[in-house]
Design a binder for these strands. Structure first.
Lengths: 192, 192
DNA sequence: TTGAAAGTTCAAACATTTTTGAACCAAAAA
DNA sequence: TTTTTGGTTCAAAAATGTTTGAACTTTCAA
């Protein structure tokens, strides 16, 4: 027989508020193409007042231990959740990271940056394939070189952007910046 | 019987360079969780010197007409490709958008911004569910309100960021900005 | 030791997304 | 007209991605 509340006075079923928070993060997860279960996990942790033990996460969300284990591993790896050690309790407790700087920073460092930095290998492959092309006209080769240069430029721009992103997610954006932006329309907007 | 080259002197098979460009964009597409075919389409257009007609896209990539049609619709809708009208030719020609500002701008406007702006509805639902909770302590309610406030704050930050992103993808990032960033470490970094 | 509790792993089941291809429509050519 | 060309649509097939659950590992407690 199972009581309605556990020793921490937390009901087994989700409260209306918890469900709403979870729903929000499930939507966000789907926008980021992450599994639904990851959204559920983060939503539960985000709404919680205190760290939650693994078995309670499983029972309250009603997902399998396997899903929970994998999802929590992912959240921990990306810095979106952290493990909390509770004395005299063998279970693993989790809590959500709520600092947006760390959340964004973790995501960028974990997935975006490695991808951008890995691109150099592919740029070299493209370069080689252009140089090796016997049958192409000067003009065509020059065109391809030009496109490759654009790609490299994009990549560099994106890399430069990362620290900016992290920074502005943790500090107010200076008004002077918005002024700056008004002044440099370097290419005409497409008329909509 | 099919000749090796069409009237524009473009071979049916992909050149080594084209394949490399396509491979790059297929990887990018997969990182963005877009269908492989979309990466192939954009890669082909990106490498091309001139706009390519629909039927040639299909035959050169070796994908179905259906895939090509849907993928090109997506690329056009998001501003990553544009239709080019060629006099005396009934076919639809496509070319890649190569301005990073427009590419990024299109993506943000098409998918990110609508999502962020749609969140208000959900914030209200969360708010209501907190207010409606009879059985919660003052402390718990206050906690949930606090978390909701954090969420709203994130959302606003993200919205403010969009124009910044678009701007810096089209203009050099002023050095003064990097200086600024050194000065405001508003929260301590986690020691790694 | 042995037993039980807390989690992890991973193959199979299930679910979702992507691609194909055949039927279809519209516009130009015959 | 009728036929052909160029392309779209969409149901079904194929490919991917996610979740489950049972077997397993590890650690603590008796």
């Amino acid at each position: 027989m199972k009581s309605l509340e556990n020793q921490d006075n937390r009901p087994d079923a989700l409260s209306a508020s918890e469900s709403e928070f979870i729903h929000f993060f499930v939507r966000l997860a789907s926008a980021l193409n992450l599994p639904r279960s990851v959204g559920e996990l983060f939503g539960l942790l985000f709404a919680a007042e205190d760290p939650i033990p693994f078995d309670e996460i499983v029972s309250r969300l009603g997902i399998s231990k396997g899903s929970a284990s994998q999802g929590l591993k992912f959240l921990t790896k990306t810095g979106a959740a952290t493990i909390v050690y509770v004395p005299r309790d063998r279970r693993t407790f989790y809590e959500a990271e709520t600092s947006m700087r760390r959340l964004v920073g973790g995501a960028l460092k974990e997935t975006v940056r490695p991808h951008l930095e890995g691109n150099d290998t592919y740029f070299e492959k493209i370069e080689k394939s252009i140089e090796a092309s016997e049958d192409l006209s000067k003009k065509s080769m020059s065109h391809l070189e030009h496109r490759l240069a654009a790609l490299k430029n994009w990549n560099e721009k994106a890399l430069q952007m990362l620290p900016l992103l992290e920074f502005f997610f943790s500090a107010p954006i200076p008004k002077s910046l918005f002024d700056l932006m008004k002044r440099h329309p370097d290419e005409p907007e497409p008329h909509t």
